[in-house]
Amino acid sequence: MKHPLPAHPERICVLRLSALGDVCNLVPTVRALQRQWPQARITWIIGKGEHSLLAGLSGVEFIVYDKGSGLAGMRELWRRLSDTRFDVLLHMQQSLRASILSLGLKAKVRIGYDKARAKDWQHWFTRYHLASHPQAHVLESFMDFARRLGVDPTITSQRPEWGVPIPDEAYDEALRMTGEEPYLLISPCANPRLRNFRNWSAEGYAAVIDHAWSQYGLKAVLTGGSSTKEREMGARISALVPPEATIDTIGQVSLKTLLALIERARVAIAPDSGPVHMANALDTPTIGLYATTNPDRAGPFLWRHMAVNRYPEAVRTYLHKEVDEIPWGQRVRHPDAMSLIHAEDVIERLDTLLSESADET
């Protein structure tokens, strides 16, 4: 039996496990649901690292699923929710693992992506699907779930709302690391996945840092995870600039402290990765570096106009096509694609943002 879409859902389940940037882009949809149905209980099934980023988000009950726990972890989650029946399940994770996980959840209505956007056979696991939305930004794709439920379109069309909480101790730690002086934040590395190729060069970042330091007296706070590749990148950047021009925090901060560092920054610079979307969520001026992915689809939503966009050139150079000739969201998986970005491109954006912020003060 196919249940009708609920007019006033009382229990809503959001299934989205990863990744950091994606869960940031999903928060405005949660806020839209909360504005439409303030009495509804929202349960979000989320990954462990992603939960550490969003922990404390108002009005949301998080259920953490450790993606490394396999079937045993799924069974434990199913047991935990065995007495819970949701009015609607928003299946927002396009992976076979998440679809299998969804089978053990009790929900009257299951909504997933339309066939054009679905991956890993996700549409086989849901009864309702999104309306077609070609060339949607990731944030807008998430918002389409709210629209499918009939959320007031004036709510989904207004400026996105986040309200990601940052604890006092995170601000204290950020201040201890940086002091009171203003700074530029740079997160130089994207997730080190196979054939990712989203990272720019140490030399490029160093040129930007030199400019920020010599022209504005701004230090650069380097951030990132604890992988060897990220630590090596930080060391290479620091070796190319005056020692007083950088503060290297790579591998030293929690995600909440990273949020505090980003919020206090004058400008954040990063490739297509979690930190650009974290900065976007905090309304910190953001320069995204894009060549392997399309910023119109995956750029920092409020700051897409400030992205350094070499994606069309990368498509022409390495795929030998134009952007409108390839599938929406296709990546350019070539190790040289990010070399199409020049330091002058980033410096021009930086000068623009710093001059705008100076005009506002």
Rank of each mutant, 00 (worst) to 15 (best):
M143R: 07
F197L: 08
F197Q: 02
S99C: 14
S214N: 13
P160K: 04
G204T: 10
H91F: 09
D114M: 03
P134D: 00
S214M: 13
G204A: 06
I155W: 14
F197N: 12
G204C: 10
Y183E: 05
E181G: 05
K106E: 12
I166S: 10
F142I: 00
F142H: 14
G163M: 03
Q94T: 04
E180D: 14
V208H: 02
T156S: 10
A118Y: 11
P153C: 03
F86E: 04
F145A: 01
A146V: 10
G217T: 03
S201K: 03
L90M: 15
H129D: 05
M92W: 04
D210S: 07
K119R: 15
R85N: 12
Q158K: 06
T154Q: 15
L89A: 05
T126D: 15
I100T: 07
Q94D: 13
R193C: 07
E140D: 15
H211S: 04
M177Y: 14
L185N: 00
Y128G: 06
S187V: 11
F197K: 02
G112P: 10
S82C: 11
R195F: 10
E169D: 08
E203N: 05
D144N: 11
S157N: 13
P153D: 03
A206N: 07
Y113E: 09
E161A: 13
R85H: 14
P160N: 10
Q93H: 15
G217C: 09
V138S: 08
R198P: 12
K119A: 13
P153H: 05
H91Y: 10
I166V: 11
A206M: 09
F142D: 07
R193Y: 07
M92P: 08
T156H: 11
Y128N: 09
A170K: 08
A146G: 11
G104D: 08
E161P: 09
E203R: 05
T154P: 02
L101H: 12
R176P: 00
Q122D: 02
L184V: 13
E203F: 04
K108L: 10
Q122L: 15
D152M: 07
P192K: 03
H137N: 13
Q135T: 00
E181R: 15
H137L: 07
G150A: 03
E169P: 01
R97L: 03
E169L: 06
S214C: 11
H129S: 13
D210Q: 10
S95I: 09
Y113K: 01
T178H: 08
S187T: 14
R193E: 14
I155Q: 05
A118G: 10
Y216N: 06
L101D: 05
W162E: 00
V151G: 11
D172F: 00
E161R: 13
A107V: 13
Y183R: 02
L175D: 09
A174S: 15
P192R: 02
L96S: 11
D120N: 11
N196C: 12
S201C: 01
P134W: 01
S141T: 09
S214Y: 08
A207M: 02
P160Y: 02
R195S: 14
Q135Y: 08
D210P: 00
S82E: 15
F142S: 09
A98D: 13
N191P: 00
D87P: 13
R97D: 08
E161F: 02
V88W: 08
W121M: 14
Q122G: 07
E173Q: 15
